Simulated assay, not measured.
Amino acid sequence: MDQGLVALLSAGVGLVGAIGGAAIGGLAAARGARIGAETAARATVKQVRDQADIDHDHWLRGQRLDACRAFFVAYDEYGLAASNMTRAVERGIAGSEELVGQEFGRSMTNFRNAFFQVRLVAPAAVRERALQLATGVEDHYDSVRNILAMDGSAMAAAQAEEERLRYELGGIWNALMEAVTDSVARRPMTE
């Protein structure tokens, strides 16, 4: 064989090898780039989801705190209005019962509205305690309103019942405060 032909054949084989190697290398590089891009995309999606979960937890915690604050304020307002109402009845101040009664009714409406906010966002333990408090406040509200319709010995019995209910509310309030404190202190939020 002629040296020129051998060189030409060698060059052709080298060319085919180079093209084949480049093609295989290009395919491997493309596959590696695709795998790298998919891995980066999955990592980005996971990071975005994790950040969304964290943001949602912060938002929910804020909503819970706001709802509990509003509930506490409404409970305090109710307690003040209830005290004013019972004092007006005890003192028998003519005409003041109607004005104080309107304030008492408004405070109860505000308390109910605040309770509904807690029901929407609070964790189960807080909702349960808030429901107990709301039920106790409803009973107390009815008790105070019953006092208005009574006189004499029936009024004394109704006032004793109101005082008993008021004392019960204190215990329920303390249990609610513990549940809220536990809920706020828990991290990460599990409910």
Results as ranks from 00 to 15, higher is better:
120 L>M: 11
122 A>M: 05
122 A>S: 09
123 P>Y: 00
123 P>W: 01
123 P>Q: 11
124 A>F: 00
124 A>E: 09
124 A>D: 10
128 E>G: 05
129 R>C: 11
129 R>N: 14
130 A>G: 05
130 A>E: 03
130 A>Q: 11
131 L>I: 05
131 L>M: 13
132 Q>R: 14
132 Q>T: 08
135 T>C: 06
136 G>F: 06
136 G>D: 11
137 V>A: 01
137 V>M: 04
139 D>N: 13
139 D>L: 05
139 D>S: 13
141 Y>W: 11
141 Y>F: 10
142 D>T: 09
142 D>Q: 12
143 S>W: 00
143 S>P: 03
144 V>L: 07
145 R>E: 09
146 N>R: 13
148 L>H: 06
148 L>D: 06
149 A>H: 05
149 A>R: 15
150 M>F: 02
150 M>H: 05
151 D>E: 06
152 G>A: 05
152 G>H: 02
153 S>G: 04
154 A>E: 03
155 M>S: 08
156 A>T: 08
157 A>K: 13
157 A>W: 01
158 A>H: 03
159 Q>I: 03
159 Q>K: 15
160 A>D: 07
160 A>K: 14
161 E>A: 14
161 E>S: 14
161 E>H: 13
161 E>G: 04
164 R>W: 04
166 R>K: 14
166 R>A: 11
166 R>S: 13
167 Y>M: 12
167 Y>D: 14
168 E>N: 13
168 E>W: 01
169 L>A: 08
169 L>R: 12
169 L>F: 02
171 G>Y: 11
171 G>H: 12
172 I>L: 15
173 W>M: 08
174 N>P: 00
176 L>S: 08
179 A>W: 05
179 A>E: 10
182 D>G: 13
182 D>V: 07
182 D>E: 14
186 R>L: 07
186 R>H: 09
188 P>F: 01
188 P>V: 03
190 T>F: 02
190 T>R: 15
